[in-house]
Design a binder for these strands. Structure first.
Lengths: 254, 254
DNA sequence: TTCTATTGAGTACAAATTACTCAATAATAC
DNA sequence: GTATTATTGAGTAATTTGTACTCAATAGAA
């Protein structure tokens, strides 16, 4: 669907008023990353997102959007908050002027994109190395940014990131995290580093190790990474069955 | 606004596609209660809810709706989940037929109420005795029901109740609960009973008492209830400042 | 005045958390 | 080839928290 069709005929495919926005988190080089889009004409940054199709619920829409942006299926997704501030409407109007220029036709005042939009916020956890960031026709780039180094975002997306992180940290305290963010094989040190990054505080090495091993969600692979200096740690993977059980029944951390 | 105006002209005031539904919880006679509406013509039960005005965000809409239904301002409100299942549309269509009959005019196919609706779910905690349940023009009654004795609800409202309770229980594990559900003065036994009801499990009396007093959120009033059999317990109230701090910083329970 | 259900307080034990130590190890430097 | 060194894997003592109780004090009821 090209831009003109989207603006003028999009209401046949998409539901007006309701959009989905995703905070996609990855973990690389011991740093938490987030996937951001840079828009073509207005030059702003935003989270990946879009309208829901008439045939989709919000989660399915999020999965479609994320498949397009990352190439991945079966992403870990969690709804965190729905944003409905009345100022969201004004931002839409601003964008519409832009469409007028680009399309070279007047967009009618009752166009579906003029409507105020409520955004259902999701966060996604993905394995950094498996993502192939793909911009769409509206955006000039789609890239990972360090969570500590995010440019000012459009709309209320700064608040979305804050809330997504807050919900993720809450999840961390009563459910395991890591299966979706780490590669298949990883060291306990890497897992600890992930937890430290998400919590924003250092953790005791010995105690973290003890705690994690006691949950039974880790499985020793027998392998060790090569080429690293000093003693190399064991590589672990998640015991998916035990992980799923812990996820369901809940574990407290710390 | 009467029914005819609402159906035919409501789109001028209300946003289509997006509604707000509230699970209102109260506590009375050591039982958890929920506020339900019984509809006039279709005879079904539902949670109180409604459409957002163009001038409102979701929380403001929820506060307006709850003010109308309970008479209360400044209710404790928490967003828990947004429901966007595609089957929600069909249910709306069903209702529209009903409007045709009642109004005696054909509701046009492009009427705003025909649109599929996404519902933003909130839960509210209120002091049972302060609520004066009020039906509106669509409903024949608005009443408290025991949480263990809920009739089948319309739409996906059963799932809404389940999710609201789940979120409330999660809140209980890391934030204090009670200020919004109990009267100004209460005994530690009543507070324990509230916790037991919400968690669905018995708690040790001595340990609960110790834990609660150690948080510093309780303040002894010096009074005791009269007219009860046997030794009467002390009446406590919440130290609102300490409560607010615990709410913000979080406390783990148990 | 005695009886009894309930409260407020305390205590012994178990479990979890915290703050450490230390030997084993594997790559690096010499 | 051997010594050096940063890091891992494992363990332990001290402390805190949680669990399962007991028991005297109390105030209305018998």
């Amino acid at each position: 669907m090209n831009l003109k069709d989207f603006v003028l005929e999009g209401h046949r495919t998409f539901m007006p008023n309701v959009a989905v926005d995703c905070a996609v988190f990855g973990f690389h080089n011991n740093e938490l990353k987030i996937l951001l889009l840079k828009w073509k004409y207005i030059k702003g940054w935003s989270l990946p997102g879009g309208y829901m199709k008439h045939t989709e619920d919000a989660e399915l829409a999020a999965r479609r959007l994320l498949k397009e942006r990352t190439g991945l299926d079966n992403i870990f997704l969690q709804q965190h908050h729905t944003f409905s501030g009345i100022t969201r409407a004004k931002l839409s109007a601003q964008n519409l002027k832009m469409f007028d220029k680009i399309l070279g036709v007047d967009v009618p005042a009752d166009n579906w994109l003029h409507a105020r939009t409520v955004a259902i916020g999701y966060y996604a956890l993905v394995e950094y190395s498996k993502v192939a960031p793909q911009p769409d026709s509206f955006t000039e780039s789609c890239e990972w940014r360090n969570i500590e180094d995010i440019p000012p975002l459009m709309f209320d997306h700064d608040e979305m990131v804050t809330r997504a992180l807050k919900t993720l940290r809450l999840q961390l305290s009563h459910q395991p995290v890591g299966l979706n963010l780490l590669p298949l094989k990883f060291t306990i040190g890497e897992l600890q580093s992930l937890y430290e990054t998400l919590l924003g505080q250092p953790l005791d090495r010995g105690n973290f190790r003890k705690k994690m091993l006691s949950t039974g969600i880790l499985k020793k692979t027998g392998e060790r990474p090569t080429g690293k200096a000093h003693k190399t740690p064991h590589l672990y993977s998640f015991n998916k069955k035990a992980y799923a059980e812990s996820f369901k029944s809940g574990i407290s951390f710390p």
